[in-house]
Amino acid sequence: MSQGPVIFAYLDEPPFCYPGKGGGAEGSDVELVAATLAALGISTFEARLATFAELLPGLASGRWAITTPLFITPERRTIVDFSRPVWALADGFLVREREQGRLNGYQAVASANARLVVVGGQVQEQTALGAGITPDKVLRVATQEEAVRAVSDGHADAYASVATAHRGYLARRPDPSLAVVTASDGVPASGAFAFGKSGAALRRRFDDVLAELIGSEWHRAMMARHGFGAAEY
Score class of each variant (00 low, 15 high):
Ser2Gly: 13
Gly4Gln: 15
Val6Glu: 02
Val6Gly: 04
Tyr10Trp: 10
Glu13Met: 15
Pro14Ala: 12
Pro15Thr: 06
Cys17Gln: 12
Cys17Asp: 14
Gly20Gln: 13
Lys21Arg: 15
Gly22Arg: 13
Gly24Ile: 14
Gly27Gln: 05
Ala35Gln: 14
Ala38Asp: 13
Ala39Lys: 10
Ile42Arg: 01
Phe45Gly: 04
Leu49Tyr: 04
Thr51Tyr: 11
Leu55Ser: 02
Ala65Ile: 11
Ala65Val: 09
Pro69Arg: 06
Arg76Ile: 04
Thr78Lys: 13
Arg84Glu: 08
Phe93Trp: 07
Leu94Phe: 05
Glu97Gly: 08
Asn104His: 07
Tyr106Trp: 07
Gln107His: 06
Val109Ile: 15
Ala112Cys: 09
Leu116Ile: 00
Gly121His: 01
Gly121Trp: 01
Gly121Asn: 00
Gln122Arg: 15
Glu125Met: 00
Thr127Cys: 08
Ala128Ile: 05
Gly130Met: 09
Gly130Lys: 12
Lys137Ala: 07
Leu139Lys: 04
Gln144Ser: 09
Ala150Gly: 09
Ser152Pro: 03
Ser152Gly: 10
Asp153His: 03
Asp153Asn: 11
Asp153Trp: 06
Asp157Lys: 04
Ser161Arg: 05
Ser161Ala: 08
Val162Arg: 02
Val162His: 03
Ala163Trp: 10
Gly168Lys: 00
Leu170Asp: 03
Arg172Pro: 03
Pro176Gly: 11
Ala183Val: 01
Asp185Glu: 11
Asp185His: 09
Pro188Ala: 08
Ser190Ile: 01
Ala192Val: 06
Phe193Tyr: 11
Lys197Gln: 15
Lys197Phe: 11
Ser198Tyr: 05
Ala200Arg: 14
Leu202Gly: 00
Arg203Glu: 06
Ile214Tyr: 00
Trp218Asp: 01
Met223Ser: 01
Ala224Tyr: 02
Ala231Leu: 09
Tyr233Thr: 05
